[in-house]
Design a protein around this nucleic acid. Structure first.
Lengths: 208, 208
DNA sequence: TGTACATCAGTGAACGCGCGTTCACTGATGTAC
DNA sequence: TGTACATCAGTGAACGCGCGTTCACTGATGTAC
């Protein structure tokens, strides 16, 4: 195993600074304010310097997307997979909302640029990819499967695990969007109401 | 009642052309491509001409938001309020999805700029505003109220009509976002699956 | 260890671009008599 | 109805701006002998 040279360590640190600055900009000013020049200003480099680390603005955006996805994965990882399936799904949804609440602009970035879901795939691809322990969607998909296996969610013709996973994601995502826009501006206790809604939804999927 | 002069009619027509062009741009190229200059190009005017009709780009964006909201209202209006409450709510959700499906970029514009919901209000404001027959959110709110009155939706502590309305809107909105991004790229029959999800959700709200 | 050379992260100036907005103007449409 | 004047929708050129990207460069860090 090769130990990193000082040059490589510096390179890594700068790369990290660039992404951190990008994420800060998104968090503070919104995703549409993200520009190479603003990143350069924040880390006190010339704009051209960024091209030593990334090929283009697009490459930076991609890297930030991956980072955001990783953070979302971390937020979801705190929910123990040992919970009974119904509780697990509710807590998973709440963890998604907490992520959106604590990283609102960051969530907005994910929501705007790339919903963390499989892109363009077949049913088999998804089932195989569901093994990936950290991928956010896979986590949900496995939770749904456990619920079906435990007899808590009823599969019906044309409405199986994949459809259920999309529906639950839709509910969580919609809640996150509304909550992010309205939190504190509406006379609603969002966490409590959203928890109830998740419970109603998952109950409904079991009793049809 | 004064009849419009030719000048006024021309003024109106140009105003209409500007908004139509703006909506076309959003529909074809996305909300972030909307610019005064592109509008001017489409209607074959000079950019400066737009200032005879709107004070600023912001004023045009506002006008487009209103227009988009009006269109959404029209899409929801096709669902007869005479339907039984549960069916009504399901059909209202499906109408929202149809709107998003048929006007994807337009929906994206609404979703990006301004979710069609009361902004910053008290519970009383909303209940009073719920009389407005055409407002999208009011329509949903009245549907929920009917469901409660008919005993089909169970009010629980901290989870009343307003919370239910937000939850249903969240589900519909999340579905619309996911569907818009994934339609035709995932092995899912979205309309059927979404209808089932609405049914499960509303059933769940009634049986807790 | 000391010296000569190679690497390459970061610089600073410049490019062309599309943007929103302003300004003095023109010329067809509308009005007063 | 005809003429003289007023209105004002639309023009075209220009403004300053921030953007992504390119380029020849410099100078500290790293390497070979």
């Amino acid at each position: 195993m090769k130990t990193r040279t000082p040059r490589e360590r510096r390179q890594e640190r700068t790369r990290h600074d660039i992404l951190t600055a990008a994420i800060d900009i998104i968090a503070e000013d919104g995703a549409d304010q993200l520009s190479l020049r603003e990143i350069a200003r924040r880390i006190d480099y010339s704009p051209a310097a960024l091209y030593r680390h990334f090929d283009s603005k697009e490459a930076i955006v991609d890297a930030v997307c991956n980072e955001a996805n990783r953070r979302l994965g971390d937020s979801l990882a705190v929910v123990p997979e040992t919970l009974p399936p119904v509780e697990y799904l509710i807590e998973l949804g709440m963890a998604y909302l907490r992520f959106a609440d604590e990283n609102p602009q960051h969530f907005h970035f994910i929501a705007t640029w790339q919903i963390p879901m499989p892109p363009d795939v077949t049913r088999e691809d998804i089932e195989q990819a569901a093994d990936n322990p950290d991928d956010p969607f896979s986590r949900l998909y496995r939770g749904i499967q456990r619920g079906i296996d435990a007899g808590k969610l009823h599969v019906r013709p044309g409405y199986g695990a994949l459809e259920m996973a999309f529906s639950v994601w839709a509910l969580a995502h919609g809640m996150a969007v509304l909550q992010t826009q309205r939190l504190g501006r509406m006379p609603i206790d969002f966490p409590a109401a959203n928890r109830q809604a998740f419970a109603d939804f998952i109950t409904g999927m079991g009793s049809a």
